[in-house]
Simulated assay, not measured.
Amino acid sequence: MSYFIEFRDVSFRYREDQPWVLKDVSFNVQSDEWLAIIGHNGSGKSTIAKLMNGLLLPQKGEILVDGVQVTEDTIWEIRKKVGMVFQNPDNQFVGTTVKDDVAFGMENHGLPRKLMVERIQTSLAAVGMNDYEAHEPHRLSGGQKQRVAIASVLAVAPQLIILDEATAMLDPKGRLEIMETIRNVQEDQDLSLLTITHDLQEVVKADRVIVMNQGSKWLEGTPRDVFSEKDKLRNIGLDTPFVTKLAAELSAAGLPIQREPLNHQELLEDLWTLHSKM
């Protein structure tokens, strides 16, 4: 099987006199897959994102993006394929209008003007911001700013989008809207998606989850598999979704919940099934 992203025994530290931030980390990302990475602050999550985008280079091991090794000579080729949306969208804005900002990345890549005009319209439409072309980015709401940041990345037509705590500054409603937007865009454009987050409601929607702990890949599996390891997660200080905790309490009280529910709908379905059998 070929993978879009390959980390092969990657280690990284920011200075030689400091401990390793990543230690022999290996994992793959498939095309069209949504991978979530979780872990404490300092566990290496954001460092992985920066390595994947060529903002950092590993001291040990190698990283391949679409079969191309990430090196100083290939980073501009890599960045055409891997786009990144950061926690604070204000840090990504460079244009005086939304239209200018979406155009900026394409200009850096030397795209023809006609293609740029088309992509500005299609990328803004994809995130529901096509009526805001002439607006100043800094006057938008937090959720609108993040939508524009996503549109700016989409316009370059990457094959993978990294969201590095991209919803952390939003309220719950804003987080839900952004993640729904991202899911729709991923499905429409066949993108790979990597989310680095503390929001467990984002994690349960992913196809696969990697748990980082002290610079190493500590656990990997589907969201259901990962959150079924409640005691292990608790031992390293990580939380589980509320519905998972509730299901555990119900099981302890004598209700035989058969699976690890990931949302309220699944838990209600399980409870209704149990009720029907009584």
Rank of each mutant, 00 (worst) to 15 (best):
I120C: 08
V226K: 00
V204K: 08
G142R: 05
I48L: 15
V85K: 03
Q59W: 05
T222I: 02
L233M: 03
E16V: 00
G105N: 03
F4D: 00
R113T: 12
G254F: 05
Q258P: 12
W76F: 11
L140T: 11
A155M: 07
V153Y: 12
K60V: 10
V94W: 09
R8K: 15
R175V: 06
L219D: 00
V25S: 03
A36R: 10
E133Q: 11
G110R: 09
E33F: 02
L163D: 06
F7R: 01
F93G: 02
T71A: 08
T71E: 10
E16P: 00
E107C: 11
G143N: 08
S192W: 01
I78T: 12
R119S: 08
N235K: 14
P256T: 02
L200V: 03
H264V: 12
G215F: 01
N213Y: 13
F86S: 02
Q189H: 05
T96S: 11
H138D: 11
E249A: 12
G143A: 08
V148M: 01
D101Q: 06
L124G: 03
L268N: 13
T197D: 09
F27R: 08
K230M: 15
Q201I: 02
F27M: 09
D131S: 13
L111V: 13
A168P: 12
V68S: 03
L262S: 03
V94H: 07
A252G: 07
G254L: 07
G237M: 08
S276Y: 06
V153K: 06
Q265T: 12
L267K: 09
L35N: 05
E6I: 05
A247Y: 02
D90A: 07
F93T: 03
H275Y: 15
F227I: 08
L191C: 04
L64I: 04
V25A: 04
G174N: 10
D32Q: 14
A103G: 00
D73G: 11
K60P: 08
K277W: 09
S11T: 14
R224Y: 00
D270C: 07
Q59A: 04
K81H: 07
I178F: 03
A166F: 14
Q214E: 15
L262R: 02
N263V: 02
D131L: 13
T240V: 15
E260T: 12
L56V: 07
L22D: 01
L255K: 11
P137G: 10
K230V: 14
T71P: 11
